[in-house]
Design a protein around this nucleic acid. Structure first.
Lengths: 197, 197
DNA sequence: CCGCCCTGTGAACCACCGTTAACATCGCGG
DNA sequence: CCGCGATGTTAACGGTGGTTCACAGGGCGG
């Protein structure tokens, strides 16, 4: 009954087999695309055979769904929390949002990659739920951007938000070649400049 | 003998069956992901059955390969041409590059989407060739950015270029909701601000 | 008008892959 | 010590989808 909820609190400390699978799958999905990796691949990555996966997940799609749902939830929760803690200054709010997104992208390049590439290979209802969360996260940004650009309408600020996401989420494409701090500072500066342009 | 070359000069005027297929495939690939669309789907989109495709392409992978190669070539050629025609001012060069990329992304959202999502589902040698072209295009940007940021090293400017690509290529995610001119102006302003930050 | 090439069709083939079934092992509570 | 739940393994099933094959129509040069 609480089975579905068990999925929600990730045990980062001592990763259960379930968590190992989820992590390995995220890595593989990011590298080759969700449809291109087989259940056997995921199993092999954690040292078991393919069908063993079904002791932990109902299906391969369920794995992907849970993965994407978690990401979207973490982004939404983190984003709203940061804004709430940032006081009333719109620029300060923007800066924490940018820092948050940059950190997230640098910490979880695989998740970021899967997030906006494999949404399409989700069942209709799962996809809808993910999109709802995404939309709410975007709205957090739109609200902040709205105070920085009072003259712009919501649609424009939505496009602005997506553009900033694209900028920050470019990390996986150019990752590893630069020290993390340098990359983080660069992306934050660029994102802020773009968002306030 | 000149059969392979025929592929190179796109007949935009009266689209041959080959071109129709390529266009329809690009659209479908962008919507669902290359691996998720079947040969039958592509065929149906142009009014023929699945196997008819093989009268025009050696395989489904060959379709994708030609698609990605063309995009990369167009970007590289267009980018170098624009820079060459822009004179010596680095800022002017950046502006034409930005305008070029924005126009391309707005004109070919499907190609942009496929371009950086389905590269992974290409045969090793095709992928390598595409990556070579991509790298050369990035270097065009890096050179221009290098003159705008003389203090930064090449790796930093590479990351900068990727970030700008991510920003501009966000169009497919927020497309349609805004008039094209507005979107173009917004993206260009944001991209320039980010690139010069 | 004959015959060949181009393009297309429907059926069949075959490999791959997600999923299930049937059976082992291990650890732990009673 | 018995047994049961959790976890895994191997074998098999079934669907999907890329590819090939044998055949048909149709236009065009000779």
């Amino acid at each position: 009954m609480t089975d579905a909820n068990t999925a929600l609190h990730a045990d980062a400390a001592r990763p259960s087999r379930r968590e190992q699978i989820l992590r390995a799958a995220a890595q593989l999905f990011a590298e080759r695309g969700a449809r291109a990796v087989g259940v056997d691949d995921v199993g092999a990555a954690v040292g078991v055979t393919g069908p063993a996966i079904y002791r932990h997940f109902a299906s391969k799609d369920a794995m992907l769904a849970e993965m994407l749902l978690r990401i979207s939830e973490r982004l939404l929760e983190g984003g709203t929390a940061r804004v709430a803690a940032a006081g009333d200054d719109p620029l300060a709010q923007l800066r924490t949002l940018v820092a948050f997104q940059v950190d997230f992208a640098l910490d979880n390049p695989a998740l970021i990659t899967v997030h906006d590439r494999d949404l399409g290979s989700l069942a209709a209802d799962d996809a809808a739920q993910v999109r709802r969360l995404q939309r709410r996260y975007v709205e957090v940004w739109v609200e902040v951007l709205g105070r920085l650009h009072p003259e712009a309408d919501a649609a424009t600020n939505r496009a602005r938000a997506h553009a900033v996401f694209g900028l920050v989420n470019s990390t996986p494409h150019s990752a590893g070649r630069l020290p993390r701090r340098t990359t983080a500072a660069l992306l934050a500066a660029m994102a802020e400049a773009a968002a306030t342009a």
